[in-house]
Computed example of a mutant assay.
Amino acid sequence: MIPVNTPLLDGNEKKYLLECIETQWISSEGPFVKRFEDQFAATVGRKHGIACANGSGALDIAVAAAGIGPGDEVILPTFTIISPAASIVRAGGVPVLVDSDPNTWNMRVQAIEQKITSKTKAILVVHIYGLPVEMDAILALAERHNLIVIEDAAEMHGQTHRDRPCGSFGLISTFSFYPNKHVTCGEGGMVVCDDDRIAERCRKLRNLCFEPERRFVHHELGWNYRMTNMQAAVGLAQLEKLPQHVQRKREMGLRYQQRLADASEIQLPLTRNDAAENIYWVFGIVISDAVALTPEDLAAGLAKRKIGTRPFFWPMHQQPIFESMGLFQGQSFPVAERLARRGLYLPSGLGIKNNEIDEVCDAVKSILSGASRIDG
């Protein structure tokens, strides 16, 4: 079996975990949490890091700390995981969607300004799959309209935008440490920022909004989104190897690019955009409309060969839960809709071997060669 993701745990993970067990510091009070927060924040060029249970929790905290509340409009891409939109909705805010660029698959920056109204409070940027969003244009737009920028850099560990680390932009940024990320804790997340007041607010929201005067007397609601010392120990070991992980991801991406270059039936990801070289968080492909083969067909064919895949994100404006809430009625975003229906990604974990990448590519091309063409 070639799984869609195989993590790589060949650093100090075992050593640091044993230290947790031997010292009996396994909870969120353990010393690895602070070490991980400080070193991760420094890595992405931020003053503060606030470790939490997962990336979705990091977004909940960030949205609340940014002051998003009932009626506030927040602009974000429709083509993303559900977590950013869910955080906005839970805060009482109103998600306002923009379509994707067909080449980078990121949010179409040129479409943002026309969505700004008197109720717009923030732009929530989500970097998708390996290339950064055009942040210079986003920041200029936000400054011109006095808007907050929240940066979801969950997929961007080690990526830069014109040599500045992703995760260093705007008021506040978030990361995920799910097993398919360049840095993993198994589960985990991080909020990073520069403002002392915002950082303290995030720490309070992460920890049930306990009050210093009397711990179990609460004046507001927060979350139990704490990260354990054991998670942080794994994360710290992973962070130590981030440069090697980035290098390996780019080697994997280049190998996929070379082996699939002659497969005219699929669109490959861009190797770079104006701001950065692709970091290949995942290696996505989009099947041509001229081929009578769906991503589900391709995934099924690969599964028979014991190769794992995963579909692309489903657009927010077509999510059943949001439709049931009456959101996004009558809205259409054709690029995102096509990406969702014609895209999937191939095994992309750091633990995959070169011969396995070759096997995946051979299988993909074999299945594509047998697909009929709609244009005859």
Rank of each mutant, 00 (worst) to 15 (best):
A111H: 10
Q231A: 15
P102W: 04
M135G: 06
I2A: 15
R203C: 12
G284E: 02
V4D: 11
G376K: 12
G11I: 04
K47A: 06
G351P: 03
A263Y: 08
Q318A: 07
G45A: 06
G330C: 07
L350D: 04
N180M: 09
M190N: 05
W223P: 03
E359A: 07
V63Y: 00
N273F: 02
S264D: 14
D194H: 12
F210K: 08
P311C: 01
L131V: 01
G186P: 03
T104R: 11
Q244F: 14
I68V: 11
G188R: 05
L236H: 10
G67C: 04
H161E: 03
Q39W: 02
V96K: 12
L59P: 11
D194W: 12
H48C: 01
D163S: 14
G93F: 04
E359P: 01
L339H: 11
R90H: 11
N278D: 08
M230A: 15
C166A: 02
R342E: 08
W25Q: 13
R197H: 10
G222N: 04
A66R: 00
Y16S: 05
K181D: 01
A42K: 12
Y345R: 05
R338V: 04
S332G: 07
R250I: 00
D196K: 12
R226K: 09
V234M: 12
A122N: 00
F169R: 08
S366A: 13
Q114Y: 05
R259K: 12
M325L: 15
L171D: 00
A142P: 00
A42N: 12
D10T: 15
V44L: 09
K119A: 08
W223S: 08
G308L: 06
S100V: 04
M107F: 12
R162W: 01
Y225E: 04
A340H: 07
K304R: 09
F177K: 06
S168V: 13
D274E: 15
S324P: 00
V364L: 12
Q244Y: 15
E356M: 05
A111G: 02
Y129G: 01
K15T: 13
E13N: 10
G49H: 08
K306T: 05
L302I: 06
E113D: 13
E323P: 00
P269K: 06
D362S: 10
L8F: 09
G55I: 08
D60I: 01
V246I: 14
V282Q: 13
D196I: 01
L293R: 11
N355K: 03
R248K: 14
E73L: 05
